[in-house]
Design a protein around this nucleic acid. Structure first.
Length: 507
RNA sequence: GGCCCUAUCGUCUAGCCUGGUCCAGGACGCGUGCUUUUCAAGCAUAAAACCCGGGUUCAAAUCCCGGUAGGGCCA
């Protein structure tokens, strides 16, 4: 049994995230980035962003931008990587082709890798055959010992080929072990692995090989990544051995699962960070939510800012089992952070949604008024996007609603048309007499009026609904809304009285 | 199919290493109540879990063995 020495004690801590720009920043990638970032912060190390764009067909610059923007939006900052000085520098794989070629050539020269000319069909047939015999599908080594002249001939004859890495360990030492920071010891048997394809050609390295080279070149000390990479680890360790590189410390994070416990995918809602942003989730909420999927400090604390996390995070406390994505919890956290936000900030964040809904026309509402509108709506908001349906009646001139909505359902029955009319007339009279139009005065006068009204009508004195419910509906046109004082205060006297008159006409 | 990983309330989890304080704690969600003109928010409160089977031990969620289930990776 050979255990690869993992000497990282003296080396500086360097963690990294290496997304492929083949799609928008995925929530799983973002969470892995977060954990790497927190680990680096906590241990006074560096966090590096590297773009793995070797897959030219599927890589696109716009996804690189999406990844960069998403991470920044979340507040996850990198010490090294693209965006520094506006250049990608060496943090993009396509700019590092020469480096891969050098190491590829080295492996070829040392006969630790070889050219393979097997065709897809050939391999597929063998795979099927192996599986039907109950064996692990692995490369049978057909091209492993080809004579030099044959290789030369096929190569110059432009026969399609790939480069394979020799998975060879001395007899009795076929096991590869590594000590995972989260899962403790993990062991694989290399005897079960076939020789791995590491490049399509000298200029086109494949994932497993490129990562090994990149992590070495960038002196990555800790590789913290998703559990889906766990089976890649022994292969990478083997290549590190062949290349004479030190093995970094590994930590494999549990996966984020869909409600049916399968790997999180688009089928179950948004998977892209940009979509969460668009829907009106706050980065604070997303960060808090993501970190709690698979980690917790062991205390009963559950609200964390990024900077608190940077102090309290510990990789050892990361969970081993996958965590189901629970949107209700995200919504709860988002609501919490919406309620926490300073009102100026929250208003600023709501403006785009109001504009999009066509409610806010430039110059229509003063900043002060907007803040008040957001303030009275915020406790009902789970996402920023909800601001428009919550506050649309503030912006509309003519409200449309069913007149029956004006009727208060008291414990004994429902108000009749006449009763509603009386109630509204009463409110109108009281309100039209008010000189100082502020929320405090409105509340005082209306509460006093309610008692007076109930006494006159013979309603139970304490039941304010007889006066306040029809009023509130007249002002909002909605079954659920902020209170009538809050709305009246924002609307102003003129509009308030106008809406009451509209309601009287309606009934 | 092979290999690997995992397993505490519906969900996220604490506890497990260092057995007893755990008839298992917190949070989300759900129920109820308070507050209340409505809905939220807030506060209070209930229901809800140690995958199964053996073993070790005076004592196991915690240690050991064996199952089972789920997931991931190989194409």
């Amino acid at each position: 049994m050979a255990t690869k020495k993992q000497k990282t004690e003296s080396k500086p801590i360097r963690a990294r995230i290496a997304p492929s720009p083949t799609g928008a920043l995925h929530i799983g990638t973002a969470r892995a980035a977060l954990f790497n970032y927190l680990f680096a912060k906590k241990n006074k190390g560096k966090f590096i962003l590297r773009i793995e764009d070797t897959d030219l067909e599927r890589s696109d610059l716009r996804w690189t931008q999406d990844i960069i923007e998403g991470l920044k939006w979340l507040g996850i900052e990198w010490n090294e990587g693209p965006d520094i000085g506006g250049e990608f520098g060496p943090y993009k794989q396509t700019q590092r082709i020469d480096i891969y070629e050098k190491y590829l050539q080295q492996l070829l020269n040392e006969d630790k890798a070889y050219y393979c000319f097997c065709t897809e069909e050939e391999l597929e047939d063998k795979r099927q055959e192996q599986m039907s015999r109950g064996l692990a599908p692995k490369y049978d080594g057909k091209c492993a010992r080809l004579p030099k002249e044959i290789i030369e001939k096929k190569l110059s004859g432009k026969i399609p080929s790939v480069i394979r890495f020799r998975v060879e360990r001395p007899k009795g030492h076929s096991k590869v072990k590594f000590n995972d920071l989260i899962r403790k010891e993990v062991e694989f048997d290399t005897a079960l692995m076939g020789d791995i394809v590491i490049a399509k050609n000298l200029k086109t390295p494949l994932y497993n090989f490129a990562v090994v080279v990149d992590d070495f070149e960038m002196q990555i000390s800790h590789v913290i990544r998703g559990e889906d990479h766990i089976a890649n680890t022994p292969k990478q360790i083997l290549m590190q051995e062949a290349l004479g590189f030190d093995t970094p410390q590994y930590a494999h994070l549990p996966l984020i699962l869909a409600p049916d416990r399968s790997k999180m995918s688009k089928r179950y809602g948004s998977v892209a960070i940009s979509e969460y942003k668009e829907q009106g989730y706050l980065p604070e909420a997303l960060v808090n939510f993501m970190v709690l999927l698979g980690w917790n400090p062991g205390t009963e604390k559950e609200f964390f800012s990024l900077s608190q996390l940077a102090k309290e995070f510990s990789i050892e406390k990361v969970q081993k089992a996958g965590a189901v994505f629970n949107i209700a919890r995200l919504d709860f956290l988002n609501g919490f952070y919406i309620r926490e936000k300073p009102i100026e900030k929250l208003t600023e964040l709501c403006v785009p949604y109001l504009k999009k809904a066509g409610l806010l026309v430039v110059g229509q509402a003063s900043e002060h008024k907007l803040e008040k509108i957001v303030e009275v709506s915020r406790s009902r908001m789970k996402k920023l996007s909800e601001i428009s349906e919550l506050s649309d009646f503030f912006f509309e001139d003519k409200l449309r609603y069913d007149k029956n909505l004006l009727k208060w359902h008291d414990p004994k029955g429902t108000m009749g048309d006449g009763e509603v009319g009386d109630s509204l007339e009463f409110s109108k009279k009281i309100l039209s007499e008010i000189k100082t139009w502020d929320i405090k005065t409105l509340e005082e006068k209306l509460f006093a009026a309610s008692e007076k009204f109930n006494a006159e009508k013979g309603y139970p004195i304490q039941n304010k609904g007889y006066l306040l419910w029809p009023l509130r509906v007249a002002l909002s046109g909605k079954q659920f809304s902020p209170g009538p004082f809050e709305i009246a205060d924002i609307l102003g006297k003129e509009k308030t009285l106008k809406r009451i008159e509209d309601a009287i006409k309606l009934i």
